[in-house]
Every structure is written in structure tokens, then in C-alpha cells.
Design a protein around this nucleic acid. Structure first.
Lengths: 341, 341
DNA sequence: GCTGGCACTCCGCCCCGCAGAGTGCCAAGG
DNA sequence: CCTTGGCACTCTGCGGGGCGGAGTGCCAGC
């Protein structure tokens, strides 16, 4: 186990390195932090920390920089989450309050997070398989053409054109609409298939193929709707690091374009609080020199089941306490907004 | 006016510079192109071209690179649009054919364009003010709560929750729905306000405030729907140039995040064919070292009114004929897809 | 108007030397 | 056993000088 002072040295190294972006040496450390010991002692501590794998030197006889393991220890044991200032909180609320619909909420959240953390923001649309159906609408457009509209409790709307195998009268459409809604409204997506299974039986033989077609389109839309989507913003913030990482910005941009990868990444974060993934802890190659700070959010309270995730992507050398604070705060306010609507 | 050969020299310079990314000298030019004259002659021509502002030297006694004016002449007079190969066309069609809905079409188009041109792709959603209303649906959710769903001919769906000032019976909802649709279906957004203006008069005095509320929400949704949106992809392609332009990638990324700016930029391109904006021709600061190649697309034929624009953003040093060809081809196929659905 | 020749310029590269920062180790002191 | 000051060592970064190469502009000749 590392002594108290060595942990303190590690903390100081992380803080200084995050601030200055330069390897930090023993002398500078003793000057900037009141450690109460001489540089020589710090050097010894640093040697130990290096042996243990918490810090490393980019080149012999340079200062030390934290390793992924060092950041991990820092995040887990040495740093808390830095709460936002009151003006910041007020700004968040004001900014999010103006949203008119779900797209707008997500869009504003992305911009807000990116601006607040000065990093790349990622926000997943709140629409998981635990969503429920709010309403299904059928609109006869032509004798054999129906538009199906699915509305979910998260405020999303999905629409599909249905080409019927046979003409289907307006009365039948109304009938199907009524029966359908009485069965599925308020139900979870996953439960819908078996709830509508026997629905065709209630109709005339002639109409059954059409009913079947409508149902299969509905089920398909449900699958699509539970597919997760996300929005990204603040990519220009990546360039703040390009003098350091001219090579790493590219794979990060590529990873950000692969929404599937990001969704998987966010989905893996099961922690009820803020989850931090540092460097090589990320499964995706392009992100091995990046950190991902994410948290679930939802219309319920903090403990409530999260509808989706949001977070930021930045260099491993990031201000973890501040970023975690911002991510957590934004998630809370977004949750409030969603709960109100 | 420039002589035939001097134009030929300019064309050769542009082609070589685009290919090699290095300033091109007189000797290399005569070796790589059969100009039929000696380097000395080419040097004289280059001096003239430089006087006229078509080319410039980054430093004294270096080769020449084209200026924005040089690229402009190249695009207008010296180069055509390079048609895509048959396999490329087939790939486009295959890729776009799999789209299930509008979001998917736009998403696929962005990815396709980015991949094809290896540049940043920008696709505007097809929803301009010339869109028409396909259907308006009203769903009573509670006695004083209605969901309004607006479906447009471009396949977009917009939904709004309406809190009614007074309870509103199901029969009244059905009545309003019928009256509303009979007036606005098939009409352009812009025409809707005056078409529904006198609608409240047809209802009981008690219901008029509610009808008025519903109408104002509808009008608001129409405005929102005609707001233009766009999707961007392939930003990682920007990094292919970062060794040349470490400073310019940042403002470009920033400009790309400002969708409003991009929409304005696309909107200004009135050319019926492919529009090319080179470097300083772009109004936005961040894009003064970038070129934008764009074209309108829509469900009609090429001459038909365009629903929206799509295009790519890249360095001024880009393969204009190839890029223009790709942009034009993608626009055509997307138009076809939209026409079919 | 084209061509070959020639002197000139300037960039990029490499090597050198040097100052600075930082380290590891050691021996002495608490 | 931990801490401290001292010291020799290493490595990076930076400025200076020299050099080759590519390219130019100009000029005289055809």
C-alpha cells in the first residue's frame, strides 16, 4: 500500500500535469505544493510510484506524467466530484428550459455539455426497450395504404407507410386502431408482440392479411425505435490537443462517427453514478488515449432507472473532478426537464 | 485573355498540386505533361499567371500553387465534371436502396458522400417551406390534453402536446380533425395560416379557446418543421490535411458545428447545377481556406424544384472534377429514392 | 516567341554545442 | 528507517552554421 504522502504526491502530479500539460518534476512539485519535504524525498516517492506503474517518464530525465493506472487511482481515491458553481447551475437551467421538443432537449444538452467541459459531448436519445407505447395511430391515406404512427412515452414519434395486401375500409381501420390501442397503450415495447398476437382472429378472413401486415410493420417500428441513437457535439474541442496528439485526434474522430461503438461503450457503464473510463480501459482502439466520463439520466430521480446515457470524451489528461461534476449536473437537469414534459 | 497554352499550364499546375500536395515547379511540369515547350517557356507563362493572380509562390524560389482565383478559373473553364464509374454508381444505388425511412436516407447519404469523396459531407433534410401537409392527426390523451401529429409530404413527422384551456370532448376532437384535414391536406405550409383562420367560428363558444390553442400549436409546429436541419459526417477526413493545415482544421470544425451558418451557405447556392465555392468566396471566416461543393436534390427530376441541398466541404486543394461528379451522382440517386417512397 | 545557360535565392536538413531541467545515487544526519 | 543535500549524468530543446537541391529570373541567341 502506498503511504499517505505518496498518494499526495500522485495527486499533485495529476493536478499539475492536467493544468500545465507538461511533465512535472520533483522541484516544481515541492514549489507548487506544500508537501513539507524536499525534492529529493519526492524523487524517491516518484521512483516508487513509477515502479508501481502509476506514473511514467516520457523520456529519461524528463518529468513524470500519470499513467492510466495513475489516473484511475486519482479518480477512485484522491479526487471527488467538483460541484458546479451557482451561476453555472443557473446557466444550465436557463439554457435547457427553452427546449421545445425532445430533439431540441438533446441538441441543447449536447451543446451545453460541450461548452461546459470544453470537450466532445455525447448524448444518447432517451429511448430504451423499457419505453412504453403512448399511442398508435392509423391513418387511411388510400384504400390500400395506411400510415402508422407510433408515439412513445419518451416523446418520440415513428411513422411507417403500410401497403395493404387488400383494400381496407375506414371502419375497419378505426376498429383496428381501437383494438390495438386498448391492448398496447402503456405497455412496454417488449411486451407488445404477444399482446397483439391473436388480434387478426377478431377480423374477417378477408381483412386478416392486412391486419397481419400492419402488425408486422408496427413490430418492426418498435424494434427500430428501441434502437439507440445519439447526438455528438463539440468536436472542435478536440483540436485543443492537436499540438500534443496530432495522431490521436484522427482515430478519436473516427470512433465518434461510429455511433454503434459509442452506444456500446455507453451501455457498458453500469455504475449508478458517474462512470469514468480511462485510456486503455476503453474497449475501442481509437479511444485508447481518451477518457470517457458518462452517467445515466432519466425522468425519475437520480436513483430511478436511467433512460439513457450522456457524457463527454476527452484526453486522458482531463480535469476529472470538474468534468464529472458537469456531467452529473447536466444529467440531473435534463432529467428534470424530461420529467416535466 | 490568357493564351491556350497558359491555360494548359494552369490546368497542369492545379492537377499536379492536387495530386502531390506540393508546390510545382517548371521542370517537373514539363516532365509530367507533354506541353511541347521547355521549362524556360513554362517559367515565362508562370510569371504571367502569377501577375494575373492565378498562382502564387509560398516562398521565393519555390514552386507555384494555385490561388483561389486559379481554382476558380480551373473549375469554370478548364475542368468538367468527372462521371463516376459504373461500379461506383452501382455501389451508391445498393447502399441507398436499403434505407427504411427519411432519417435513414439522410444518414446513409452522409456516410456515402463522405466515403466517396473522402471529405466532410453535409446533407440538408428535405423539408423546405414548399413542403405540403399530408395529414394532421389529433389524439385525445385526456379530457384537456390532446396530442397533435403533423405529417408532411416529405415523410417527416412532428408531434406536439396541447394543453387545452377547457375539456374538449372526443366528438369535438373528431370534428376538428375532420375540418382541419379537409382544409390543409395537400396545402403548402405557408398557406395554412389563412386557411384555418376562421376555423374557430365553426365551433361552440366554449370550445373556441381550445380550437384556437390547437391551431396556434399547429402553426408553431409548421414553423419548426420548415426550419432546416442537416446532418454531417466524415469529419475524420479533415485530419488527412492536418499536417498541412494544423491551424485551419479547428475553425472548419467550428463552422461545421454551426448548422445555421452551413444552412445559410447551402441556401445561397442558387445554381441549378453543382455549385462550387472556393476559399475566400465563402462568407464564413472559418471556411476561407476550404471549398464547398454543393448541389440541390429533390424527388423530381434534375430540373425540378430542389427540396434541399447536399454537398461536401474540403480543402481548396481538392479534386474538383471528381468531387463534383460524386456530389451530382449522389444527389440524383437520393432524388430517385425520395421519389419512390 | 522559344530556348539554353547562368547566377541567385531560399528552404529544409543535419550537425554541433550549449543551457536547462530532471534524475538516480550516495553519504550524512535526524 | 526515513529524509536531506550534493553531485554526476542524461536527455531535450534551441539557436547557429554549413550545405545541397529545387526553383526562379534574366539574358542573349536563334
Amino acid at each position: 500500500m502506498l503511504s499517505e504522502r505518496r498518494l499526495e504526491v500522485l495527486r499533485a502530479i495529476v493536478q499539475d500535469y492536467v493544468g500545465t500539460e507538461e511533465p512535472v518534476g520533483s522541484k516544481a512539485l515541492t514549489e507548487r505544493h506544500r508537501l513539507g519535504v524536499s525534492p529529493a524525498t519526492v524523487r524517491n516517492d516518484m521512483a516508487v510510484l513509477e515502479d508501481e506503474g502509476y506514473i511514467a517518464q516520457p523520456h529519461t530525465s524528463a518529468g513524470r506524467i500519470p499513467t492510466d493506472k495513475g489516473y484511475r487511482l486519482f479518480v477512485d481515491k484522491l479526487a471527488g466530484v467538483k460541484p458546479l458553481s451557482v451561476p453555472e447551475r443557473r446557466a444550465i437551467q436557463n439554457f435547457l428550459d427553452g427546449a421545445v421538443d425532445l430533439d431540441d432537449v438533446v441538441g441543447r444538452t449536447v451543446r451545453l455539455l460541450a461548452q461546459l467541459t470544453r470537450q466532445v459531448a455525447v448524448v444518447q436519445y432517451p429511448s430504451l426497450t423499457r419505453s412504453t407505447v403512448r399511442h398508435v395511430e392509423l391513418l387511411p391515406l388510400a384504400p390500400a395504404r395506411i400510415m402508422l404512427v407510433l408515439i412513445t412515452d419518451t416523446g418520440r414519434v415513428e411513422q411507417r407507410l403500410v401497403d395493404c395486401p387488400a383494400p381496407f375500409g375506414e371502419a375497419s381501420v378505426a376498429d383496428l386502431r381501437a383494438r390495438l390501442n386498448s391492448r398496447v397503450v402503456g405497455r412496454r415495447f417488449a411486451d407488445v408482440p404477444k399482446l397483439v398476437q391473436d388480434l387478426p382472429d377478431a377480423f374477417e378472413t378477408d381483412d386478416r392479411p392486412t391486419v397481419q401486415t400492419v402488425l408486422s410493420v408496427l413490430l418492426e417500428a418498435l424494434v427500430e425505435e428501441s434502437e439507440e441513437r445519439l447526438m455528438i457535439g463539440g468536436t472542435s474541442n478536440l483540436t485543443r490537443f492537436d499540438h500534443d496528439f496530432p495522431l490521436t485526434i484522427r482515430p478519436v474522430l473516427e470512433a465518434l462517427e461510429e455511433h454503434v461503438v459509442l452506444l456500446k461503450l455507453l451501455g457498458e457503464a453500469k455504475d449508478p453514478g458517474v462512470t469514468v473510463r480511462i485510456g486503455h480501459e476503453n474497449p475501442h482502439e481509437g479511444l485508447t488515449s481518451a477518457s470517457v466520463v458518462s452517467v445515466g439520466y432519466g425522468a425519475g430521480g437520480p436513483q430511478n432507472e436511467a433512460l439513457a446515457k450522456l457524457g463527454v470524451v476527452g484526453p486522458t489528461r482531463m480535469d476529472y473532478p470538474g468534468t464529472m461534476g458537469a456531467v452529473r449536473a447536466v444529467a440531473r437537469y435534463v432529467g428534470q426537464i424530461l420529467a416535466e414534459s
